[in-house]
Amino acid sequence: MCAPNKHGKTGREGMSFLPALFFSATVFFFFSIIISCAVFPVAGADDEKLSIILIDGDEVYVRSGNYYTFLQDYQIYVKGANSEGNRVWIELRRDDIFLEDAIVGEGDTFAYSNNSTEILNLTVDTIYGGANGVLVKFSPVYQYLNPKLPMPQTPATSPASSSDNNSSIPTVFENQAEGFDLPLFLLGLGSVLLVTGFFAGRYRKK
């Protein structure tokens, strides 16, 4: 009776590891397909609801008879105030084209949307009366990117309102969309390694 060949046994163990490697690669392939189908459509649906913030809660001051120019050339005008000085008439324009107007008082919110996408949201914080008219403080102020317009390159403030504005416009836009799901990826990678180790040990015993 011949003794077992140790070299032959080692060779068979090496050859038996190949099916385990092939099986783990197959499992990883199908797992990637499942993750792609389950995660990416949901992320694509969420992208439609997410928006890029251009102005995030800043303060804007505008005097009656003047205007303030936001990014993407939106302009908010303070057309006038009532005799008591507690309500003002504001108007929103873009490229000298009328968009929307409203009569608001302290605590009121003026919002403008385009095709169900909110672009501007202004809250009238304080109305300061004076001999030369009123000064309106809008706070907080939110502006969101209009995807149908060109991406703004630099903050734009009109000369007529630059002296009244003490707010800062962020030059780096914030994108709220979340990206890669690292915990899910690590969980999948750990599952693949676990299956690979299990079948590799099983083939080695054989």
Rank of each mutant, 00 (worst) to 15 (best):
D73I: 15
L54G: 01
N86K: 09
V124H: 01
Y128E: 07
A25V: 08
R94S: 04
E106M: 05
E100F: 08
D96H: 10
D47N: 15
Y77T: 02
F110K: 03
A20L: 06
T123F: 07
T126S: 07
L54A: 00
F29P: 01
A38T: 14
S16N: 11
N115C: 11
V124F: 02
S83D: 15
I35F: 04
Y61D: 01
E84A: 05
Q75A: 04
A20M: 14
S36I: 02
F23L: 04
I76G: 00
L122H: 02
G65Q: 06
D108R: 02
Y77M: 08
N114K: 12
I35H: 03
L99D: 01
F70Y: 11
E106A: 08
F22G: 08
F110T: 04
R12I: 12
S116R: 06
A25G: 11
G57P: 04
T26H: 13
F31M: 09
G107T: 05
T126V: 15
Q72E: 15
S16G: 13
I119C: 02
I90V: 13
I52D: 00
S113Y: 12
V42N: 07
D58S: 10
G44W: 14
F30M: 06
V42L: 15
D101T: 09
L120D: 01
F28G: 01
V39Q: 05
G105W: 13
T26N: 04
Y74P: 00
F70K: 01
A20I: 05
R63A: 13
F110L: 10
T123H: 03
A81I: 03
V88R: 00
L18K: 15
T117W: 02
D101L: 09
V60W: 00
F30L: 14
A45N: 10
A102T: 09
P41M: 10
D95V: 09
D47T: 08
A45C: 08
K49F: 08
S51I: 07
R93M: 14
V62A: 03
F23G: 02
F17W: 15
A111T: 12
I53S: 11
I119R: 00
D58W: 03
I53D: 04
F28Y: 03
G11C: 13
Q72W: 08
S16H: 12
N114D: 07
E100M: 08
E118L: 14
S51T: 13
I35P: 01
A45H: 06
N114Y: 14
L120P: 00
I33K: 12
R93I: 10
I97R: 11
I55D: 02
I53K: 05
A111S: 14
I90W: 01
G80P: 09
D95F: 14
Y67P: 02
E59H: 06
G105E: 05
L21N: 10
I35N: 13
Y112A: 05
I53A: 09
Y74N: 01
Q72Y: 10
